[in-house]
Structure formats: structure tokens, C-alpha cells
Simulated scan of single mutants.
Amino acid sequence: MPFATSLALAFSLSADAFAASLGKGASLHRPGLREAARIGAYFGAFELGAPLVGLAVGWGIGGHIEAVDHWIAFTLLLIVGARMAWLAWSAEESDAPRPARHGALALMATALATSIDATAVGVTLGFMNVHIPATLATIGAVTFAMAFTGVLIGRAAGPLLGRWAEFAGGIGLILIGIKVLVEHGVFG
């Protein structure tokens, strides 16, 4: 697999993380570079680790996990997205200041949900003649960069759009979950 193919794969896998990080950045009170890097690190690490799990699955139990991986991703994205959308409107603007950072559990749940598709990619990587460490490093680095950028864009959009930005981020996660189901042929 040439580097250009690995890079294209990395960008396609990081699209969900980028969308989620937009919402994460919009829901925080002026996240700085450090918080953007922290969020990027969570997303990058999970996106890098998911293909490793897929490799193990591919070598071990093969296609058994594929029967439910899309449901796992959908459920996690639905829960995280619904909570985010609900929290955007659940409190008065004045008595619920936006947090300075997200908790580790919330970041892990979102990063896990957006990296489930990379597990399936890992299964296929195990059967291809590719330089797996370079491909995984590319996936992790690109996802880190995309999530980092998404947080900073979300930071700019959050104050301009207020609750609508956080609400849209939550709805975006739910739509990503629905997209996962559509791609797996659940609706037809």
C-alpha cells in the first residue's frame, strides 16, 4: 500500500473524529491548544488502537465481530450524541457555564465510538501486504491533527453559535451513528 493510499485511508477514518471534535470544542469554554492536543491525543490513540484490535480479531475470530460492530458504534454514538444535544438545552445559559475541559470518560466513549470502523479496517489490513506500523502511525497522526483542528474550529464556532453549536455536534454524532448503520445495510 503506497503512502498516498495510507494517507487517504487515514483521512477517511478520521472524518468522524473531526466531526465529533467540532462539537467537543464548541461545548467547552475557550479550549486552548493544550486541551485541543489532549482531545486530539484521545482520538488519535483510539483510532490507532482500533486497527490493532481488528488485526487480532482478523487473526483470531475473523468475521464474528463484524456482525455487531456497527450496532456497537451506533449505540455509543447515539448515547454520547443524545447526551450532548440534551445538555445543550437542559440548563439556562447563565447558570450553566461551559466547562474548561471534558472528562476522560466522555472523551474515551466518544473516541471509542468514532473508531469502531477502524477495527474493520484492521481486519482487512491483516490480509494485505502492507507496512502495518507505518499505516497505523499515519492513521493515528492524521486523526490527532484532524481532531486538534476540529476542537479549534469548534472553539471559534461555539461562542458565535452558542448552544446551537453544541446541539449540532450532538446531532452530528447521532447522524454518524445512523450513517454507520446505513453503510452496513441495516436499512435495506
Results as ranks from 00 to 15, higher is better:
A100D: 14
G54A: 10
I174W: 06
A8G: 13
A37F: 10
S94D: 14
A168W: 00
A85Y: 00
D16M: 09
I116W: 02
S6G: 14
H102Y: 08
V57K: 00
S12Y: 09
L160E: 13
S27R: 07
L136H: 05
G140L: 08
I79K: 07
L175P: 02
M108R: 03
E35C: 04
F148V: 04
R38E: 08
I61N: 09
A20M: 05
I132S: 08
A50M: 15
R34Y: 11
P99C: 10
G122Q: 01
G44A: 08
M84W: 03
W164E: 07
T138H: 07
A157H: 06
A15W: 12
A85H: 01
P159S: 11
A50Y: 10
A118E: 06
L76F: 15
I176T: 07
G44H: 08
D69H: 12
L105R: 13
G172F: 11
L161M: 15
R34W: 13
A118L: 09
I174H: 09
F46N: 03
G32S: 08
L87M: 13
T143H: 04
L125N: 05
F74Y: 05
A147F: 04
E92Y: 07
D16T: 10
M84E: 12
G60R: 07
V123T: 08
R163F: 03
R30H: 15
P31C: 05
G150P: 05
L152A: 02
I176S: 01
A15R: 03
G40N: 04
A91T: 13
T119V: 15
A73M: 08
H184G: 04
I116L: 13
H102W: 11
G44E: 04
L22Q: 07
A8H: 09
I171C: 10
T135R: 06
A82R: 12
S6K: 02
A36Q: 02
G185I: 05
A145M: 11
E66P: 01
G122M: 06
G54I: 00
T110P: 05
L107T: 03
A50N: 05
A141K: 07
V80C: 09
S21Q: 06
D69W: 10
L125P: 05
H29R: 13
F148T: 01
K179W: 05
A73K: 06
A8M: 12
T110H: 08
V121R: 00
A141I: 09
R83K: 14
L52R: 00
T114E: 03
G54V: 08
